[in-house]
Write a protein that binds this DNA or RNA. Structure first.
Lengths: 206, 206
DNA sequence: GGCGATCGGTGACGCCCCGTCAACTTTCGT
DNA sequence: ACGAAAGTTGACGGGGCGTCACCGATCGCC
């Protein structure tokens, strides 16, 4: 943050942005430590040097900060996934690239995904924020395009998307738990499952 | 509740059981209405004619009642799933029976599964209680037996179990949302995916 | 640079939920 | 019939919740 920045954006805008980021950063740390259920707005605000009232100038609730975190994450992963799928020249590359990119991301950002599994109990929380849902939708659209181009049988794209999402998140859970499981092996497994599976899927009745 | 029951079990045992059930029943109703995150212990106890202190003679927290609900559900589904898989003479029957039974259960007990999807937001909560985990474990054991008997390639049973669980829960979500999706179609889809997929899965390195 | 307007940080406040516990009521055993 | 034990009750201190009146800092304007 240079003097030039301050001149350009104004002091007000500057602190607004930095406060928001301070809250988000504190939230990421606290959520990762205490889990979603146990953390309170007070815990988050105490991890910053702001007053409790300030929190509510930026977010309505802890759920809303959590959504902001999820959106931030989704916005980081989605372009990579999209790029991978667009670059794909074969259906195998499409599937393999998707899983490999996602699992790689999970491995290198375990803190974000640790929030989904509470420390002590087997408590999963997942919020499908608009950005996350948009990511699912992108996948569905790309699958429909694959159907259109004939590399994939004409099957229910919603169910296929749901299946890929379910497998991706559930194996991501294994990835976080099992140190011995490599990203490559996880991706190879999921890829083989879907490559072999889609050919057998029931064709759509039109 | 007859006089004979009272005689046989004693009044104390009788009210203890009925109080516990009253709390569980109230919890199921309240969780289904407000969602997991929004309901409080007070909401649950207010839905009974008991005092707030009484709640804590039966459960430590709302999480514990929720776990009791999940356990109850798991204990109803597991025997059906197990029976289906033991009866199966082919690998197709094994997979198909598992999915069909599970989806059928979800369709007919949507209230329980609605708790997993908050009304307004796309907020998922899942607690893998001991009974639920035991159900996953049963599936894994049965898969290992299938590998042993040679009807399935020697692939990572944990990943396969995770994949089936992921697909089952994610498609269950679609089943609750989409009225036009039939149990049969959902099961046929998941079955085909795995029947086609397992043959292509990477073999384990021993 | 000075000045009024506006913005936004602050923390105390009232509300409600939390989990506990001493007092009380009901049941049990003899 | 009566004392002991079990179990219920709701009031209580503790703390998180979201709000708001206050006030210092920033901005636009001359």
């Amino acid at each position: 943050m240079t003097d030039a920045d301050v001149k350009a954006r104004g002091k007000r805008e500057e602190t607004k942005a930095s406060n928001r980021q301070a809250i988000i950063d504190a939230a990421r740390r606290v959520f990762a430590e205490l889990g979603y259920g146990a953390t309170t707005v007070r815990d988050i605000i105490r991890a910053t040097d702001l007053a409790s009232g300030t929190f509510y100038n930026y977010f309505k609730s802890k759920e809303e900060v959590y959504q902001a975190l999820q959106d931030e994450t989704a916005l980081r992963v989605r372009p990579r996934l999209r790029a991978e799928r667009i670059r794909a020249r074969t259906f195998e590359a499409f599937i393999s690239g998707s899983f490999h990119t996602f699992f790689d991301f999970v491995r290198h950002d375990e803190d974000t995904f640790a929030t989904m599994r509470q420390k002590q109990d087997n408590f999963h929380v997942r919020i499908d924020t608009p950005e996350v849902l948009a990511g699912f939708d992108e996948l569905r659209v790309d699958l429909e395009a694959a159907i259109q181009s004939g590399v994939m049988p004409d099957t229910d794209p919603d169910l296929l998307m749901a299946s890929m999402v379910g497998v991706a998140f559930e194996i991501a859970g294994q990835l976080v738990q099992r140190k011995d499981l490599s990203v490559d092996d996880a991706a190879a497994f999921a890829t083989a499952l879907f490559l072999g599976g889609v050919q057998a899927l029931p064709r759509r009745r039109r």
